[in-house]
């Protein structure tokens, strides 16, 4: 009994050039692997540009607010006493021109939540919740309004206390974060969520 010899044609096809489906599968697999590795690192999107540094009087526009800080000052007397009762302490006051560029009413508090502050010397971080003592629209010489209506620019003042034991501030680094009205992780209903950092203001603190 003899073993039949393989036909010359079959041997040629096995050892010959790659079949098309093998080549396509290999290309698809390679692409999928590259994408799977690239996605956790930010996908194939364009890298975010560096956060721009701005100065007093320059405007930054996000999805909710356009802000233009025009005065930063330090005081040892409460510049905005609530109901006439002045607080003790040292105060940092920032005045802005603000326009609500969204389509919903906002408040000065909504803006204050998206501002991050650090004062020098000492690089002291001012807590945007704990150290904020007042925030309001300056109108009619009174401090009793805090709404920011869409398309209506306002002068806004936000007051913070300077933490005790720190030197008197001479400069302020103010970072402004965007907000976007979108659905989030907690709910499919749209809400305002923090967005990208839009600008860093390098500001001198006046007296």
């Amino acid at each position: 009994m003899t073993t039949p010899e393989p036909s010359p044609g079959r041997t040629e096809s096995r050892r010959g050039p790659l079949r098309p489906w093998i080549a396509i599968t290999a290309v698809v697999f390679t692409l999928a692997t590259v994408l799977a590795l690239a996605w956790p690192a930010g996908g194939l999107r364009e890298a975010k540009p560096d956060i721009p540094h701005r100065r007093l009087g320059e405007t930054t526009t996000g999805h909710r607010f356009a802000i233009n800080p025009h005065k930063v000052s330090y005081a040892t007397k409460d510049p905005a006493p609530a109901y006439g009762d002045a607080k003790d302490g040292r105060f940092l006051t920032i005045e802005f021109e603000v326009e609500n560029v969204s389509d919903q009413t906002a408040t000065v508090n909504d803006l204050a939540f998206r501002l991050y502050l650090a004062v020098s010397p000492g690089s002291t971080v001012i807590d945007r919740f704990k150290d904020k003592t007042a925030g309001f629209v300056i109108r009619d010489g009174r401090y009793d309004r805090e709404q920011l209506q869409p398309g209506l620019p306002e002068r806004v003042m936000i007051v913070y206390t300077v933490p005790a034991g720190r030197p008197d501030p001479t400069s302020l680094t103010l970072s402004f974060e965007d907000q976007e009205y979108t659905s989030g992780f907690q709910s499919e209903l749209s809400e305002w969520y923090p967005g990208d950092m839009l600008a860093i203001y390098d500001l001198e603190v006046g007296r």
Partner: peptide, 16 residues
């Protein structure tokens, strides 16, 4: 109470 304008913006009543 809101004023809803033709362009879809919503103005909440004043806080006064």
């Amino acid at each position: 109470a809101r004023l809803r304008t033709a362009d879809g913006a919503e103005y909440l009543a004043s806080s006064i």
